[in-house]
Amino acid sequence: MNQTYEKVLFGFIAHILKRIEDIKSYFGYIVAQKIIYFLQEAYGVKLPYNFYFYHFGPYDDSLDTHLRIMKNYGLIDIGVDPKGMGYDIEVKKDAENYIEYAKKFIEENKDEVESVLKHFGNYEPKDLELAATIHFVFKNNKQHYRGADLEKVIIEKVQNLKPKFSKTEIEKEYDHLAKINLLN
């Protein structure tokens, strides 16, 4: 990754994290991963990640490493959340230069960022885990099933993958994603 690209990418990520900060009092890796997942996979923002399925839904380990490098650079801080249950990501002042550097890319993807934050900005990590899982399973199965069959298969598969969610919860989020045209 050359420095120009790294600066644009880290600047864009810092911008996203800053926007999440404006909405949530604290958030960690799960929220960052899922918001960036939706930006790339549902809204087509050109980012370099290859998401695969992991414990809390779609995940990319390079993104995790990039967040840690951003921490080493002093662009963000990753602390423990006040409840002591997870992480708390905080964007630092040094990120401003990077955000400025990525200005053009941020501007080009402004609408996509607004949409993701509008629909998912208020979601708790657990809700994001479910929404991103449904979207991920949908993307990987949509070619093989049609109409009502497709919905049934997706809900069944998500139930198997995430038994902690009830069928009603899965159906509700499925409907939400369909309503905002993310299940096409």
Binding site: F53, N140, L161
Partner: peptide, 14 residues
């Protein structure tokens, strides 16, 4: 094939 590309998640065996 789908197991290898992780398209079909299998959290127990993966």
């Amino acid at each position: 094939g789908k197991f290898i590309t992780k398209e079909e998640p299998n959290p127990i065996l993966q």
